[in-house]
Amino acid sequence: MTGPGAKGGPLLRASGITKFYGDRVGCRDIGFELWPGEVLAIVGESGSGKTTLLNCLATRVVPTAGVIEYRMRDGRMRDLHALSDAERRLLMRTDWGFVHQNPIDGLRMTVSAGGNVGERLMAVGERHYGHIRETATDWLGRVEIAADRVDDDPRSFSGGMRQRLQIARNLVTGPRLVFMDEPTGGLDVSVQARLLDLLRGLVADLGLSAIVVTHDLAVARLLSHRMLVMKGGEVIEEGLTDQVLDDPQAAYTQLLVSSILQV
């Protein structure tokens, strides 16, 4: 199903991803394919290796073993960990986004909202202040931040606004793949709901692929097409989101699903 060089091939292919921290297992022997426009959720409890896997995929951590290939814009599959530093960093600030759980990790807190969104544009060579500001204001509008906040720095923003700003900052260069680490963590439920709504709209409009790490099955249900369930560093179940959540096969997945609080 993966014709090499074919336009319809997967965007990212991981095989045998293993990460040890000394003797301890981070994640072990994980493989999957991510297709263009697909949103994949990685779920599991704390310590199950979700974030380790995400960091390996996003080249923030070097895996102990395994290969991660990514289809570059020219259509060729490249081994991510064999890219040069320059290529990898260019990829990270143009073709990828990374939304951190805590927006402080993903934003420049002392730089205005406009500067935060414009940073990637300037990094790829945009040198016209008017254009940068216009694009930044446009993106603030798309993530529902009022245009008159463009010169305020994120320290004056609420948690939900910071998270939306972080999303705008990542999407401004039109990435094809976005990594999200607990994007709704730490937000209250009504803000979560609006953020999820926004994310779902953006992902659909832009045709993004995304890999979302979350311990919140509701987030996975709303955002993702497919999911991996992790436990103890290994994938114990995978499949279409609705299928896994409605008819869990593994005992642990059944436990997870039955643990969802019903109000």
Binding site: D85, S112, G114, G118, E119, G125, I132
Partner: peptide, 30 residues
């Protein structure tokens, strides 16, 4: 703009100077 020496050295090595313009952007915005 970037307090880490390891990071600024990498930025010089890879000619990643977008951040310098962020400072100038902030000047104009303010």
């Amino acid at each position: 703009l970037e307090p880490r020496e390891t990071e600024t050295r990498t930025m010089h090595a890879l000619e990643e100077y977008g951040l310098m313009h962020v400072k100038l952007y902030e000047d104009i915005a303010r």
